[in-house]
Write a protein that binds this DNA or RNA. Structure first.
Lengths: 187, 187
DNA sequence: TAAAATGTATACCGATTAGTATAATCGATC
DNA sequence: GATCGATTATACTAATCGGTATACATTTTA
């Protein structure tokens, strides 16, 4: 049963994050994963498809982890909102954190009709919709606006973290989020 | 007097933004600029040096434009802070806007010792320091913190704009910035 | 008018890219 | 022990990459 497929996926994910997507050749991926090109192309029919799969898995992992954390550690919707950036911080500062995929992918594939770019935009929107749902359940008037603002803080912090690992950006993003959330709740 | 050098710079800037830096070959640049590789390499001894120069010019233009706008249209330091995102919006929504270079460059060159990455991080920090100075002059206690938060909003909005042109992210970033600034001023 | 600088045109180099063809090797099942 | 699927190993293709060499044309300067 192919642990190889998973190995290739995780290896590619790491390399994409540390070296860049376009700068990482297929040969480098298979060499690092300890396999050959024939095997890679048996599981992924093209590099683009591999990129898409890496993005998909990364996003699903993040969303599932975040949703699970919020559901088990917060009862009321407003509480979820207030704890959102706590878990974002926990995710981002985790030692095996390897970046928010869709942030970088959209930069490396700027053409709007590119499949990778389209998936990135879709995932970004999906995250925003998730926050919007939380805000809506917390009876916030402009749920859409708050969701957009929080996603901006998230993107900014992720971008800062990718620019310099271990920056204190997340900490201040959390404080800014608290101000925006509290303001929206008491309106 | 070489208008060719400037033509190459602006052409490269446009292509880098619309196609990506790594995805834009030197041949494409010279063909689009209407010149030859020999001329390009007379002005820029390598592609990396061309990238650095494009980044440098873009950042200088932005900083100079922003500083000029603030100085001529706002008197008091607090007023400058409050109008900051108005001009950021004006810059970003301008039709000939071609992206905040250091946002994308840091994604395409993730290695921290890479010259392009280093310049990007430097420019990002420089922008943050600029805001910090404004906040300091406005007698804001945690000038550093506010500057970081505003730069997060700026990065997030720029990232959103690069993901989808014409998004309303800037509008909401402006609103969030107002909340954060007002809160910091009346403390 | 002669010299010098600037730009064009074109062909080339070695390295790297994504992807494929072919044959050999491995382990498990029957 | 033979067979079968999965994996490896290696060599290859055609295209593209950044960068260079050479020869020629044009314009500027003296």
């Amino acid at each position: 049963m192919s642990g190889l497929r998973q190995k290739i996926l995780s290896t590619a994910s790491n390399l994409f994050q540390t070296q860049g997507i376009n700068s990482t050749g297929v040969d480098t991926i298979v060499a690092t994963a300890g396999t050959t090109k024939m095997t890679l192309y048996k599981y992924f029919s093209s590099k683009e498809l591999l990129i898409l799969e890496v993005l998909r898995e990364g996003h699903e992992d993040f969303q599932a982890w975040l949703n699970d954390k919020l559901n088990t550690n917060a009862k009321h919707p407003a509480e979820k909102l207030q704890k959102l950036f706590d878990y974002i911080e926990e995710w981002v500062t985790s030692p095996d954190f390897n970046g928010i995929g869709f942030i970088k992918a959209s930069a490396e594939f700027p053409k709007e009709d590119n499949p990778v770019h389209k998936l990135s935009a879709e995932q970004s929107l999906q995250f925003r919709e998730y926050i919007k749902q939380l805000a809506h359940e917390a009876n916030i008037q402009d749920a859409d606006g708050l969701a957009l603002q929080l996603s901006l803080l998230f993107k900014g912090a992720a971008q800062a973290e990718q620019m310099q690992r271990g920056s204190d950006a997340i900490k201040y993003a959390k404080m800014a989020a608290k101000i925006l959330i509290d303001g929206a709740l008491t309106r």
